[in-house]
Amino acid sequence: MKKVSIFLMLVMVSWVYGQEMDDVYIQSEFLPSSNVTDIYRLQAGADIPMINTTTEKFTVGGKLQNTTLSYIDEDVPFETGEIETFNSFSLRFTYQRNLRNDWSIYAMQESQISSNFRDDNIASDDLFFNAMLTLSKYNGRDNSVLTFGAAYDIKYGLYYPIPVITYARRLNDNWAYKVGVPDSRVKYTLAENHDFEGFATLSGFTGNINDEVEVYKEDYSGTLRQTSVLLGLGYNVHLWEKLTATAQGGYTAYNRMQIQDYSNNEIYDFDMSNSFYFNVGVKYTFTNKTNDREVY
Rank of each mutant, 00 (worst) to 15 (best):
R141H: 02
N279D: 10
T287A: 14
R118F: 06
S184R: 13
D269S: 14
V280D: 03
Q258K: 15
S34E: 15
K242W: 09
T189N: 13
Q258E: 13
F7T: 07
M272E: 14
N174S: 12
L135I: 11
Q248G: 02
M132H: 00
G232D: 06
L230K: 02
K137L: 02
D102Q: 14
T166M: 11
L64P: 00
Q112T: 10
W103H: 09
S33G: 12
K57D: 04
S14N: 02
H194S: 10
S70H: 12
K57Y: 03
N291H: 11
Y159S: 07
Y167I: 01
S115K: 04
L239T: 11
V164P: 00
K242P: 03
T80H: 14
P49L: 05
S34T: 15
D47Y: 06
S275K: 13
S104Y: 03
M1D: 07
K2N: 11
P32L: 12
G250S: 10
T206P: 00
Y160W: 05
E56S: 07
Y40A: 14
G204Q: 08
T227Q: 08
T246N: 13
G204A: 11
L133E: 01
F205M: 07
L64I: 06
I39K: 04
Y220V: 11
T244I: 09
T166R: 04
D120Y: 05
P49S: 05
T85N: 10
H194G: 04
F58H: 08
Y17M: 10
G198H: 02
M50F: 14
Q109A: 09
A200S: 14
A245L: 08
L202R: 09
A46G: 15
T80I: 12
I39P: 01
V60C: 02
T134G: 00
T201R: 15
T59P: 00
Q260P: 00
T147R: 02
F7D: 03
M50K: 09
G180Y: 03
E20G: 08
L31T: 02
T80F: 13
M108C: 02
F128Q: 01
A200P: 02
T285K: 12
G249L: 09
